[in-house]
Simulated assay, not measured.
Amino acid sequence: MSELLKVSSNPHVRARMKTDNIMLLVLSALLPSAFFGVVNFGLRSLAVLAVSVVSAVLTEYLYEKLMHKKITIGDFSAAVTGLLLGLNLPSTVPLWLPVIGNVFAILFVKQLFGGLGQNFMNPALAGRCFLLISFAGRMTDFTWDGVSSATPLAALKAGESVQVLDMFLGKTAGTIGETSVIAILIGAIVLLWFEVIDLRIPGSYILSFAVCTLLFGGHGLDFGFLLAELCGGGLMLGAFFMATDYVTSPITKSGQIVYGIALGILTAIFRYLGSAAEGVSYAIIIGNLLVPVIEKVTEPTAFGREPFWKRGKKA
């Protein structure tokens, strides 16, 4: 009975699409990236993805079983977390690595904060950042076509030239799911078509990052460099599949735009001022932490009520 009294923040929207339907659509939209990753990196990547999904679902099931809580693996949110984390891993990682990442993501970031809808940051990205900090060497060991090589973003940062078309198609080194922009966009179109997401967050994210790149990327109005930065790393995967997470992104429409702009600026700061070539994961994690502030600032003013910054002031 107590669960019936829990009311989420407004706006309250009635929709025929339930959580499991949404998660199944997200899983379907991720399949093109997963399929290309397996084709590009071989069956080893399929093993990484399978272990990642199974470990995420199993961690959620065991925790809820041991804590005598309602089993929620049927909403497929744990499977989405596992697949997203797997797509953010190199194909060369040992198979125990996605297990550790998913235990951290599901147990410490999601379940210990109350489960789906209560986590304060994206679990998959939290797991990836945890692995990057803990196992930096294994998380940055990229192999493509049987040869260890740097990612295109690392080559760009070192002043080397890259092939933008190869980056768009995915014929480059990188994590399993981030290399093929065209595969990611196919999945994004699926989410947009079924109105699971809209363009406010990914559009403002990509546009603000593009502006920062042209102004502060150090290459002026070099659109070849801009396209390479847009196609490289996890920008497209992060913009369409992780920044748009319902739980960790703003509810207000104007807040979503502010959030996307903040992500674009943060990603540019990490890429151009930091020592690493990539920065999407950390940018989205920090953006998740800023969501309460963004929602507070962009809260619509009710009719007959003063804006929050005027409340409490004497006339």
Rank of each mutant, 00 (worst) to 15 (best):
residue 3 E to V: 15
residue 4 L to E: 15
residue 13 V to C: 08
residue 18 K to L: 12
residue 25 L to H: 11
residue 25 L to G: 03
residue 26 V to K: 07
residue 32 P to E: 08
residue 32 P to M: 07
residue 51 V to Y: 06
residue 52 S to E: 08
residue 54 V to L: 14
residue 54 V to W: 05
residue 62 L to I: 07
residue 64 E to Q: 14
residue 64 E to K: 12
residue 64 E to M: 12
residue 65 K to P: 05
residue 69 K to I: 00
residue 70 K to S: 13
residue 75 D to G: 11
residue 81 T to Y: 01
residue 88 N to T: 08
residue 90 P to A: 07
residue 91 S to W: 01
residue 93 V to F: 00
residue 93 V to N: 09
residue 96 W to V: 10
residue 96 W to A: 09
residue 100 I to M: 15
residue 106 I to F: 11
residue 108 F to M: 03
residue 112 L to K: 03
residue 116 L to E: 03
residue 119 N to T: 10
residue 122 N to F: 09
residue 128 R to L: 08
residue 131 L to R: 09
residue 134 S to V: 04
residue 142 F to G: 09
residue 146 G to W: 00
residue 146 G to Y: 01
residue 147 V to Y: 10
residue 154 A to P: 03
residue 154 A to T: 11
residue 156 L to H: 01
residue 161 S to M: 10
residue 169 L to K: 10
residue 170 G to I: 03
residue 180 S to N: 02
residue 182 I to D: 11
residue 189 I to S: 00
residue 194 F to P: 05
residue 202 P to G: 01
residue 203 G to F: 04
residue 206 I to P: 09
residue 208 S to N: 13
residue 212 C to F: 02
residue 213 T to S: 03
residue 217 G to D: 03
residue 221 L to C: 12
residue 235 L to G: 08
residue 236 M to F: 10
residue 242 M to I: 07
residue 243 A to S: 12
residue 244 T to D: 08
residue 256 Q to S: 10
residue 256 Q to W: 09
residue 262 A to I: 13
residue 265 I to H: 04
residue 265 I to S: 06
residue 272 Y to L: 00
residue 278 E to R: 14
residue 279 G to P: 04
residue 283 A to T: 12
residue 285 I to G: 02
residue 285 I to W: 03
residue 286 I to D: 01
residue 289 L to T: 12
residue 295 E to S: 00
residue 295 E to L: 00
residue 297 V to L: 13
residue 300 P to R: 13
residue 303 F to P: 15
residue 304 G to T: 00
residue 305 R to S: 15
residue 314 K to T: 14
residue 315 A to N: 14
